[in-house]
């Protein structure tokens, strides 16, 4: 935070100098201020990163010692970091080590099922959310007609639909896909709809003056200026889709990562259950960072390093 404000003030000062050559501002010799304050206000970014790293290491060590060695809490309830690493071995190991092989499956069955449900569910959310969002964002009548319905559906906690999704769609991937697309639809839809609202009206007017047709205005002005909002919605949906996927699989599904968490927990192998969660977190972080990178490439005027 402090970095950005500093650069901003510096650029301001230099532009002032450019405006008034030999002006008063540049006459004053600038005093280099000695670093002030307590130690935590003076450390650099690298020192801070090191500190955080040490902190995490310390927490892991304390956690390991408190639960693994002294067993302050039963390790089944709160697995230690080494338990979690062992859990990975149990999940991916073959033969005796594997805990899933007893059920005639291996972990890839679960991973494939989850990847399938996630991709299809998220894509359905995108395919409904973006066009519909653009529609209610650009057309006032469409917004007035469907807006209240959208807001009231948005108020429905998506978990509540999970038992009924089983009734409607059966026991395979379909109910999970339904829940994932329902959960990821609204961030995409509402963010997309907010996009056209913020278009600079003078841009639209000048385009009209220069004879741009309605379609041209939509394609060349409304769509590009809504793009950052769409990307924000897509990024939010990545996270919520993962959460809804796991929950939908935990509550009444026999395959998938969520089902694996339930299976491992009920076998009292909480290390393996935590390992599944670590996997899901890793995937979410990778997807989120990918989306951030894509956003910076696609809409550099909004997400670029120099901008916000």
């Amino acid at each position: 935070m402090s970095d950005t404000t500093e650069t901003r003030s510096v650029t301001l000062a230099s532009s002032d100098e450019a405006a008034r050559p030999g002006g008063r501002l540049s006459d004053q010799p600038r005093l280099e201020q000695p670093p002030r304050g307590e130690w935590w206000e003076r450390i650099t970014v690298w020192q801070r990163a090191l500190l955080v790293l040490l902190e995490f290491l310390g927490i892991f060590v304390i956690w390991q010692v408190a639960i693994g060695t002294f067993e302050l809490v039963n390790p089944i309830f709160m697995p230690t970091p080494t338990d979690v690493i062992e859990g990975f071995g149990q999940l991916f190991g073959s033969g005796d080590k594997s805990v899933i092989s007893a059920t005639d499956q291996d972990i890839w069955v679960h991973i494939k099922r989850s990847a399938y449900s996630y991709t299809v569910g998220y894509s359905i959310g995108v395919m409904i959310g973006i066009p519909f969002g653009l529609l209610i964002g650009t057309s006032r009548v469409a917004y007035k007609l469907t807006g209240p319905l959208v807001w009231s559906l948005y108020a429905v906690p998506w978990v509540a639909l999970r038992p009924m999704a089983t009734v409607w769609f059966g026991f395979e991937a379909a109910p999970v896909i339904f829940i994932v697309s329902f959960a990821s639809l609204f961030p995409i839809l509402l963010n997309t709809a907010a996009g056209p609202q913020t278009v600079d009206k003078s841009l639209l007017r000048s385009a009209e003056v220069f004879g741009a047709s309605k379609l041209d205005r939509f394609r060349k002005i409304i769509l590009p200026s809504s793009l950052p909002f769409i990307l924000i919605g897509l990024r939010q949906a990545i996270i919520i889709a993962m959460i809804s996927l796991l929950v939908a699989e935990i509550v009444g599904s026999s395959k998938g990562l969520g089902a694996l968490i339930v299976l491992m927990t009920s076998n009292f192998r909480s290390g393996a259950a935590f390992a599944v969660i670590v996997m899901a977190v890793t995937v979410t972080i990778i997807l989120g960072q990918g989306a951030r990178y894509a956003a910076e490439k696609l809409a550099p005027w909004h997400f670029g390093h120099k901008g916000r």
Partner: peptide, 25 residues
């Protein structure tokens, strides 16, 4: 300095996925 990295890390974990473990405990 000390707490915000922890908070952001915990924030990234889908806590609802812990529900089975929590019910177990």
């Amino acid at each position: 300095l000390l707490l915000s990295p922890l908070v952001w890390t915990a924030y990234a974990v889908p806590r609802s996925a812990l529900a089975p473990v929590i019910v177990l405990v």
